[in-house]
């Protein structure tokens, strides 16, 4: 017993000595964890992994991507916000941060984070099966209007998720009840699209990159996107605005840390992320997969999140999706 105590004492002393030395090393001197609130294989995961792989060589430390999934994003977003603000835990914050607190799932808001950079925004598209009788968004909306509520069903994400909001907002702007096309919740865009191909639902609202492989395969067609300009890789798909419906909605992704990141960390990461964002490696990856590229630094990102938060909140209240 005595021997053990002595051993422990020695160990503790050695530790303290080493600990002192460590404090002087520059950030980062150990691996960084990048939390992704969504599952492996999805868009947020893919973009996070490419970012991490490009950050690693520049920082000289491993950047480990950790998927903290579940709870419609609440679990991962909480994990980022409640991590130690030392710069060794960062995360990808997504559009849902401006929605979850309105629907009463969590108290977290964008103000619980230190924003770093915004790197991606994708507008929602309106997809239907390739054999569907509608070839334009007008025909689809006219069909919805002329038939009893509930004739068509839509899917693309969970109940009250971003693509559900996209559909409800579009219907409302087009002068119909927002739930005239009932929402079939799914675990994400991919299962929703598969159900579209299998004939289980009639419409899927989700971003174009999510639908791209099925569009290329000739299984699904996109009737419109909810953006202010057409997408570069799908120049034939009109915007809703062109069709006279003043409605835009997109999902975005950005890198953030918990509230109160040290200045040193922010000053190291922001220029690096800006450089990565401009690099060919990142640009090629994003455009190949059809992800929309945007960029905002910390201030711009914060203002963007504030605005997103307000507009999502007011839409959700109007649609009766806020609590």
């Amino acid at each position: 017993m005595l021997r053990r105590t002595i051993l422990l004492g020695c160990a503790a002393a050695a530790v303290l000595a080493l600990g002192m030395q460590r404090a002087e090393a520059a950030y980062p001197d150990r691996p960084i964890t990048l939390i992704v609130p969504w599952g492996a294989g999805g868009g947020t995961d893919a973009t996070a992994r490419i970012l991490a792989s490009l950050m690693e060589p520049a920082l000289g430390q491993p950047v480990n991507v950790v998927n903290r999934t579940g709870g419609s994003g609440v679990v991962g977003h909480s994990a980022i916000a409640t991590a130690e603000p030392d710069g060794y835990t960062l995360g990808i914050v997504t559009v849902e941060i401006g929605m979850m607190h309105w629907s009463g799932l969590t108290d977290l808001t964008y103000q619980d984070y230190t924003p770093l950079v915004l790197y991606n925004e994708d507008p929602s598209g309106v997809q239907v099966g390739i054999d569907a009788p509608w070839s334009t968004i007008d025909e689809l909306l006219a069909y919805v209007k002329d038939n009893p509520a509930g004739t068509l069903k839509a899917s693309g994400t969970g109940q009250g998720g971003i693509w559900h909001l996209a559909l409800a907002g579009m219907l409302k702007t087009a002068g119909m009840e927002p739930d005239r096309v009932p929402w079939v919740p799914s675990e994400g865009a991919a299962p929703g699209l598969q159900d579209l191909v299998a004939g289980g639902v009639d419409v899927v609202t989700c971003s174009i990159p999510e639908a791209q492989s099925l569009i290329d395969a000739g299984r699904v067609k996109s009737l419109a996107i909810m953006a202010s300009a057409r997408a570069d890789n799908f120049p034939d798909v009109p915007t809703l605005e062109e069709e006279g419906i003043d409605w835009r909605l997109g999902a975005w992704r950005g890198v953030a840390g918990p509230k109160g990141l040290p200045e040193e960390v922010v000053n190291t990461l922001v220029p690096l992320l800006e450089q990565i964002h401009a690099s060919d490696d990142f640009r090629n990856f994003m455009t190949d997969r059809g992800y929309g590229m945007v960029f905002e630094g910390p201030e711009g990102f914060e203002a963007f999140m504030a605005e997103s938060n307000e507009s999502l909140g007011s839409v959700m209240k109007e649609l009766g999706m806020a609590k």
């Binding site: 160990a11 503790a12 050695a14 530790v15 080493l18 600990g19 460590r22 150990r30 691996p31 964890t33 491993p62 480990n64 950790v66």
Partner: peptide
């Protein structure tokens, strides 16, 4: 690449 907790005691 599992980030086992480092703790605040040992170096």
């Amino acid at each position: 690449l599992v980030p086992l907790p480092q703790g605040h005691i040992l170096p």
